[in-house]
Simulated scan of single mutants.
Amino acid sequence: MKGTLWCLHGAVGQAADWQGFAVPGWAVKRVDLWRFLACCPMTMPEFGRALNEEARAVEGKQVLIGYSMGARLGLHALLNGGPWDAAVLVAPNPGLESEVERAARREGDAEWASRALSGEWADFLEAWNAQPVLAASDRRQGLSAHFRREVARSFIDWSLGAQEPLWGRLGEIGCPVLWCTGERDGKFTALGERAVRSLKDGELWVAPGAGHRVPWDAPAAFQQRVGEFLERVGS
């Protein structure tokens, strides 16, 4: 094995979302993000340090792969001195740049947290999947209500509104980065185009025909592109 691919799921997702994803020659570690919030609150920088500590204990090359919320959390790991040889980030948002935007996002995410914690779980999932940014994707989240407490906590601790803007720090990432977005996800493609201009070694891949959920909207193309990227950066 060349090393390990650390796969971080998105909001209202689960580690099992990455089942079926594989790159020849690499071990796949599907990270359960909810275990980090199971006992107590955890900030995004604290998460980054915790994940880095786990990755340092594993031999071989280490590659971080994150989707949406998982990719945002991955940015915090990359910016906290992790042992990463490369990273694949799918549709992250490096941050909202005005306090007005962040305050509005915190308010909206607090409402999501309340619905996740005490509302009908099926209604919560239906509303989550119906959001415009996700509606272009065929995949629907089906996470168990067993995780409702951790999901609710994530809308507070890991809210985009609680995240300090990372735009000015992207140049600190030392490893090669493949930034992925979907062709039908115009907002996040524009964010990706801006982000890669700040990276030391970054490239943008826009997945044809895909929406926000690139790894599941275009699984074969995504696996092929990640494999090609890893061959390039590993040679």
Rank of each mutant, 00 (worst) to 15 (best):
Trp18Lys: 00
Gly20Met: 08
Gly20Ile: 04
Ala22Asp: 13
Val23Gly: 03
Val23Tyr: 00
Ala27Lys: 12
Leu33Gln: 04
Leu33Tyr: 04
Trp34Ile: 10
Leu37Asn: 02
Ala38Arg: 09
Cys39Ser: 15
Cys40Lys: 15
Thr43Gly: 10
Ala55Val: 07
Glu59Val: 02
Val63Trp: 10
Ile65Trp: 01
Met69Ile: 03
Ala77Leu: 08
Asn80Cys: 12
Gly81Glu: 10
Ala87Leu: 08
Val88Gly: 04
Leu89Ile: 14
Leu89Cys: 04
Val90Ser: 00
Gly95Pro: 04
Gly95Asp: 15
Ser98Ile: 10
Glu99Asn: 13
Glu111Ile: 14
Ser114Asn: 14
Ser118Arg: 15
Trp121Gln: 11
Ala122Thr: 15
Asp123Glu: 15
Asp123Val: 06
Leu125Lys: 05
Ala127Ile: 06
Asn129Arg: 12
Asn129Thr: 10
Arg139Ala: 08
Gly142Leu: 07
Gly142Val: 12
Phe147Gly: 01
Arg148Thr: 02
Arg149Met: 10
Asp157Thr: 09
Leu160Val: 14
Ala162Glu: 15
Trp167Tyr: 10
Gly168Asp: 14
Gly171Thr: 07
Lys187Pro: 01
Phe188Val: 08
Gly192Lys: 09
Arg194Leu: 13
Leu199Gln: 05
Leu199Thr: 05
Ala210Leu: 06
His212Asn: 03
Ala218Met: 01
Gln223Ile: 12
Val226Gln: 08
Phe229Tyr: 08
Phe229Gln: 07
Phe229Arg: 03
Glu231Cys: 10
Val233Ala: 01
